[in-house]
């Protein structure tokens, strides 16, 4: 375990029970996050990104099949914590979440200001005045005009609601904020605005972010580190600069090539085939059936190995070097 890391996950698993078998939504995921960093988790729809967020925050549905692995926040073992202390010490005050489509699940009958203030009054035992001042400060930081405090969610545009939701996640001053697709439903200009807001918060408040998205281009606005997820597993973990310069894993390369670029660059390419089912996924490398570099070895499960400083890849193309 890496000392002094902010979040450390080792062999994290979250499987769901279904009638057709266990869905391996998060399968042996390991990564380390440093303080004041942003980690972007990239991957296609259904690869398990939201499930990873759930696993970290222990927001488990009823049909959990397996939930195991190691998880440390500031060197504190989260897995051994009781449900009650986890709720009080970790959730929201340690790690908070901006859930996927959260902006559409604001309580429609409670004014925006009160909604943001609620966790303050409940958890931090602030009185109304203090809470209100704090909310005002937060909303200002995310760029919500002050007179919006007394409005109802439906009176706000999508961008404004998303800002409100971000403010709610920041209310308890957590070490880490998990953002699940915070901008994918928004327009380009609004998206740029929100990314600006997040950048500012990261600079001013030294909050760390775990940014879950399928949009590589947007992730580059915030990420210091990138983790690529494929079929429930991390296939590449890398520092952002090297990743965007040259992704290593065949899937990462393909993913990068599929991004349509506005300036320069070639025409985007698609990735033929489909990701495997997460119920009884094939043994060996899960990307093998779509991989242009596939060879015999790929029938075995490759390990996630370190190939450079700050770069890990789960692919036999890179492990072979290590062994020889």
């Amino acid at each position: 375990m890496k000392e002094n890391s902010l979040l450390y996950a080792q062999d994290l698993r979250l499987y769901f029970r279904t009638t057709r078998g266990a869905v391996q939504a998060v399968d042996r995921v390991s990564f380390t996050m440093d303080r004041r960093q942003a980690l972007a988790v990239l991957g296609e729809s259904g690869c398990g990104k939201s499930s990873l967020a759930r696993a970290i925050l222990r927001l488990l549905p009823r049909n959990v099949h397996t939930y195991s692995g190691e998880l440390f926040l500031n060197n504190q073992d989260l897995m051994s914590m009781g449900e009650e202390s986890f709720r009080q010490e970790v959730r929201w005050s340690g790690i908070s979440l901006v859930a996927q489509a959260a902006m559409n699940s604001l309580n429609p009958v409670v004014r925006v200001g009160e909604q943001v203030a609620e966790p303050l009054e409940i958890n931090q035992h602030l009185n109304r005045r203090e809470a209100r001042d704090r909310v005002r400060e937060l909303l200002q930081m995310v760029g919500v005009p002050e007179d919006f405090l007394n409005r109802y969610p439906f009176e706000l545009s999508g961008g404004m609601r998303q800002r409100v939701v971000i403010a709610m996640a920041l209310v308890a001053d957590p070490y880490l904020v998990i953002l699940d697709e915070p901008t994918s439903a928004l327009d380009v200009l609004t998206q740029a605005n929100i990314m600006n807001v997040l950048k500012r918060i990261k600079e001013e408040k030294s909050t760390s972010f775990l940014l879950i998205t399928h949009d590589i281009a947007t992730s580059s606005e915030l990420a210091d580190q990138v983790a690529v997820m494929y079929a429930g597993q991390l296939v590449e973990v890398s520092d952002a600069a090297s990743f965007f310069y040259q992704p290593l894993h065949p899937y990462s390369r393909k993913l990068m090539a599929s991004v349509p670029r506005l300036r320069g660059g070639e025409k985007p390419e698609f990735i033929p085939g489909q990701p495997p089912s997460l119920i009884n996924p094939p043994g060996g490398c899960r990307f093998a059936n779509r991989c242009p570099f596939r060879f015999d070895r790929c029938q075995e499960d490759p390990p996630l190995v370190k190939v450079e400083q700050e770069r890990w890849v789960k692919c036999w193309l890179y492990s072979a070097d290590e062994e020889s």
Binding site: V188, A192, K199, A217, T218, R263
Partner: peptide
């Protein structure tokens, strides 16, 4: 101007 490219400079 608002459309990003996958570029680490963006950050």
């Amino acid at each position: 101007a608002a459309i990003p490219e996958p570029d680490p400079e963006n950050a």
